[in-house]
Design a protein around this nucleic acid. Structure first.
Lengths: 248, 248
DNA sequence: CGACGTGTTGATACAGTTCAAGTTGTGTGG
DNA sequence: CCACACAACTTGAACTGTATCAACACGTCG
């Protein structure tokens, strides 16, 4: 099974599942061809640390499939997740050569990588790439700021509801399911990872998930499979007004 | 006094105090000339809200002088600051037409503005602007993620120490003072604004500032003027290791 | 002067942490 | 196939850091 991971990688950019969302989204076919020449795939197993904070980063790339986390750790071990990397998300920062965060695979992962230098050269010559990267970075900045409100001002219950709402929404967008009717999906994160995302302890996460279940806001099959019968109810619990709030 | 604010605006880009740090930093003189033609200055008084979340944004711009905050507010009034805008920082997002956050002047402010449409056109034709904006956005994203660790995992005392450390560092960079020897500067924020930045109440901020003073980590002249006798001691109190930590 | 904005300090309440025990599910080796 | 180990999760009881509510201090401005 592990050996087969690499086979999940698409051969050709045109068939790539993240073709229209990743950093290459805006590229024309000739630009894509040039990218194609310098790209290479790498696979990682669940639990593996792809990148250690402080390490030299000689590549950048996009998540093709799977989920990873961006985390920061203090000397005494306190950990905060600062980003959740889903398919099409970009890893690495052009212009910086050491990693600022740990990147850890939550599930098995395939990444489409570029050595940093050639990618930077390509970017300088290809406005479509720089444009798309700017757009993606602005979206990430919005998401980070939204998360600052969650971390700074929401109660434990609201934090959990907020996280479930985000995952539900992303899942619905990915599967082009509407927001009407019950939503069903898997939580990709362990209780501990959720705690690291939300600035809580895993015990508090467990208690609040149980409380939301008791109160009928969510239903659980096993530990991970979630049903949200009424998405607006969930948003109320998250402290968001039903319309605005989290930008994709 | 209020009427005179506009006079603080430089006439010419070459004399502009933020010429080499703002979104125009990379521009050649011909590019600067074109920017010059579409720019205009606006002044705001301390306390004024420049932009309301949800409002139509028909301009973008740079802070020339003064300080502003980016804040998010929940329906019940809980408020979280998500950004601190200092001279050279950019306001607004090309490609989006309504504001995502409230922007409030902390001090009197002068901004160098561009109507959004002409700026977007200019950006499309001027890679130097797009490049610089990407770089600035990536820096802001790093700062936001650093702040997520502060909000999610640090104690009240560490939060206060972190904020003072950031302000001290920015001030030292601005005044090209070294990090050696005692640092002296003014806190630009009220206790309440600090609380909104840190996800605390203003009472807790007040108590922890007093505690840091009692313990000799900082010294106070009046409520706002701060002396940091030993910057490394402050970093320890912030929970940062003395070398790494906050970028910029 | 009094009023108001800003900040400090104290007493009490409570949300979330910490420590500890126990449960469930899954993979492994005898 | 069972026994065992281990990771992920749940639940309980006690503790504690921060919020909340309240009173008061200081400086400034009309």
């Amino acid at each position: 099974m592990l050996k087969e991971l690499a086979s999940a990688a698409p051969r050709d950019c045109e068939d790539c599942p993240i073709r229209h969302r990743a950093v290459c989204a805006r590229c024309e076919s000739d630009e894509l061809e040039r990218l194609d020449q310098i790209k290479y795939y790498r696979s990682f197993e669940a639990g593996q640390t792809l990148i250690w904070s402080g390490d030299k980063m000689d590549f950048v790339g996009s998540v093709v499939s799977g989920i990873a986390t961006l985390t920061q750790t203090m000397e005494d071990g306190r950990t905060q997740m600062v980003g959740l990397l889903l398919p099409s998300d970009f890893v690495g920062r052009p212009g910086r050569d050491s990693a600022a965060y740990d990147v850890v695979a939550v599930s098995d992962i395939v990444m489409c990588c570029f050595r940093k230098k050639p990618f930077e050269d390509m970017m300088a010559r290809t406005p479509h790439i720089a444009q798309r990267l700017l757009e993606m970075t602005l979206d990430e900045l919005d998401a980070a700021r939204e998360w600052m409100l969650v971390l700074g001002r929401k109660t434990a219950r609201e934090k959990i509801a907020s996280l479930i709402a985000i995952i539900a929404r992303r899942d619905a967008v990915l599967n082009t399911a509407g927001m009407q009717g019950p939503l069903v999906f898997d939580l990709p994160l362990t209780r501990e990872a959720m705690a690291d995302y939300l600035g809580l302890t895993l015990e508090t996460v467990s208690r609040q998930v149980s409380a939301l279940r008791r109160d009928g806001v969510i239903m659980l099959e096993g530990k991970r499979r979630v049903t949200v019968p009424d998405f607006n109810r969930l948003l109320e619990e998250a402290g968001d007004d039903s319309d605005g709030g989290l930008l994709v």
